[in-house]
């Protein structure tokens, strides 16, 4: 076990040396990988921000729960308690029938109800969710409809669905782009490793004559490919952060003009680690083929 670790450590050092021996070539390949990775990574970050932005501009998607006409205070409280137990809720507020009527009159539509003596509007709860997943909306709607004293549940789900579909489409396209660029990355690594093998040809042959196994010979090249991937990943990360920094101010200005609060957020440490890890894995893969 110790010996195995030592052999890997040795291969790691050897790979580092080989990378260091040709800093220009290393930098160039790492840049290519970095750019290839930065495109989809930046795309995802942008998508994340767009979802947040869309929510901010258009208001969060809502569910309206209309109660039966003859509910009393205790029944309203029962619905409120039910709501408090629903997961994924961002917020909810109660709109009484009187309030609704007042709002209607203020909006100048009061005349519509002019001929009706009693207030025909129901009491209602307006619920906002933390998620914009349309499925969750449907599930909650079905659930709420069965609550006692609930007459009708309405989603502004067409809007939610449209936005979700758009974002989904963008995500799919980004995924396709990632796969494509991932391929390119594997090929870039494959090529640099192949060049490495050519320059190390003598050493490989001599090692074979001295009884080296294939695994022993391949080990430094795996590290080489993996390390190159890590470098590429770090460059991509830098590019994404740089891009966000550059966009931050103009976006803030636009947001201000619309009167909404938006701040761009970059990848967190877990996403960053995943990016570098994926890059390393791709480098490793490029070596394996």
């Amino acid at each position: 076990m110790l010996n195995w670790l030592y052999l890997h450590f040795r291969a790691f050092v050897l790979a580092l040396k080989r990378l260091g021996k040709q800093p220009f070539g290393t930098l160039l390949s790492a840049l290519v990988m970095g750019i290839a990775l930065a495109l989809p990574a930046g795309g995802y970050v942008l998508l994340d921000n767009v979802s947040a932005l869309a929510r901010g501009v258009s208001g969060a998607p809502e569910i309206s729960i209309f109660l039966n006409n003859d509910v009393d205070f205790a029944q309203i409280e029962a619905v409120r308690r039910n709501l408090e137990n629903v997961p994924h809720l961002a917020d909810f507020r109660f709109v009484s029938r009187d309030e609704a009527l007042k709002q209607l009159e203020e909006s100048g539509l009061g005349d519509v109800l002019g001929g009706i003596p009693a207030n025909p509007l129901p009491d209602a709860f307006i619920v906002t969710l933390q998620s914009d997943d349309p499925e969750l909306f449907e599930v909650l709607k079905a659930e709420m409809k069965d609550w006692p004293d609930v007459a009708h549940v309405q989603l502004d789900s067409a809007w939610v669905k449209r936005l979700a579909a758009l974002l989904e489409l963008a995500r799919t396209m980004m995924l396709a782009l990632s796969v494509l660029l991932g391929f390119a990355l594997v090929i870039v690594t494959f090529n640099t490793v192949r060049l490495q093998i050519l320059t190390q040809k003598n050493e490989i042959e001599v090692s074979r004559l001295l009884g080296a196994t294939d695994r022993f010979i391949r080990r430094p090249f795996y590290w080489f490919g993996g390390l190159q991937g890590v470098l590429g990943g770090l460059i991509a990360l830098g590019a994404v952060w740089g891009g966000i920094e550059a966009l931050r101010e103009p976006v803030a200005k636009v947001a201000e003009a619309y009167g909404v609060m938006i701040s761009l957020s970059g990848p967190d440490w877990r996403e960053s680690l995943a990016l570098v890890g994926i890059a390393a894995a791709l480098g490793w893969l490029g070596t394996a083929i």
């Binding site: 052999l7 042959e205 090692s207 001295l210 009884g211």
Partner: peptide, 28 residues
């Protein structure tokens, strides 16, 4: 084995050349 061509690694020091078979063999 000592071949007609010595087949040393010219980018490695003398001791690294001699070390190679031991590393391959997994000596600490």
């Amino acid at each position: 084995v000592v071949l007609q061509e010595t087949r040393l690694l010219f980018d490695r020091s003398i001791s690294d050349n001699i070390l190679l078979p031991l590393v391959i063999n997994g000596h600490p």
